[in-house]
Computed example of a mutant assay.
Amino acid sequence: MCPAIIERNERIVPMPFPFKAVIFDMDGVIVDTEKFYFDELAVMSDELGLGITLEERKRQVGMSHQDFQRSLQMWAARGGYGELTGDEAEDIYNRWAAGRPRPYAQLLNPGVRETVSALHDMGVRVALASSSPLANIRDVLAACGLADMFDPIVSGEQFHQSKPDPEIYLHTLDVLGLPAEACCCIEDSVYGIAAGRAAGLTVIAKREERFGFSQEGADRIIDQVSDLLNVK
C-alpha cells in the first residue's frame, strides 16, 4: 500500500493509511443533499397540504428509503390522498419533484473528488453504501463526475431494511472480501452511524450540526471529507 505523505517538523514523513477500504455514505457526505431535501419537504408540505412538521423533517435526515416511503404514506393520508401503498405515495412525491431541478454538481461537498483520488493513489479501495435508490445514486455520481470512482456501489433498496440495519454494510464487506476491522465508513446521520457500528466498522462522521442530532456514536468526527486523509 502506498504511503500517505504528511509534513512533520518541516520533514516529509510517510504515514500509511490505516484501512484497506473506505465505505462512503452518499447523502450528507459526498453531496450536501440532506439540507436540500430538508428544505424541499417544507415546500412540498405547503403546496400539497401535508402538514409535515419540523420534527418530522428532521427525522428524515439519513432515513432509509423504506422508512421514507412509510413517512410519505402517513403524510399522504394526512393530506387527504387516502390509504396508499409506499410506491403510490412515492409517486406523488416524484411527480411533485419532477419539475424541480436538483443541482447535484453544485451540492458536491468540498474535497470529495480529491480525497477519493488520493485514496485510489494509496491503493485503498473505495466503496459506496447508500440508503438511496440505485437510480438516484447513479444520477448523483454522474452529475458530480464520480461515476467510475466507487466499487462496489450498494443501494439500500437491495435489502428488506436499510440503515440503521447493518445489512447494507455487511453485504458491502462481503463484496469487498474484507473484514470489518480492515475498513472504515464515512457517515453523517444517526441512522448511518448506528449501521456502521453494528457492522463492526470504524465509523468516521462528517460533522453535521444543522439538524439537532448527536454524532456521539461515531469513533471520530471530521470537519471536512478531506480530513479523512489525516486519520491515523
Rank of each mutant, 00 (worst) to 15 (best):
V22G: 09
M63C: 06
I6A: 06
C184V: 04
E40K: 13
P152W: 03
Q106K: 15
F36D: 10
P3I: 00
P18L: 02
M74S: 10
M74F: 10
D25F: 00
A127K: 05
E209N: 12
L141I: 11
K206A: 08
F38Q: 02
I12F: 10
Q215W: 09
C144K: 08
P152D: 11
S189C: 11
Q161P: 00
A143T: 03
M1Q: 07
L41M: 15
K20H: 10
V175Y: 00
E208V: 09
Y93C: 12
E90S: 11
V203S: 10
S132K: 01
T172S: 05
K58Y: 03
D32A: 14
V112D: 01
Q158H: 07
Q60L: 15
A199Q: 14
L201P: 15
A89Y: 07
D174T: 15
R57S: 06
C183D: 11
T115R: 05
P18K: 09
Y37E: 06
S130Y: 10
C2S: 12
F36G: 04
R197A: 12
A194S: 12
D227I: 14
N94Q: 11
E56N: 04
S132G: 09
L54C: 02
Y81Q: 06
E7I: 14
Y191H: 12
Q224H: 13
V231R: 05
F36Q: 04
G49T: 09
M15I: 15
Y169F: 15
F17W: 07
L178I: 06
A77M: 07
D32T: 01
L146C: 02
I52P: 00
W96K: 01
E187T: 02
R59T: 14
A97D: 14
G99I: 01
D27P: 05
Q161R: 14
V112I: 11
E56G: 04
I6C: 07
R95V: 13
N9L: 11
E83F: 04
K163G: 03
A97Q: 15
V190P: 00
A182F: 02
C185R: 01
I5S: 03
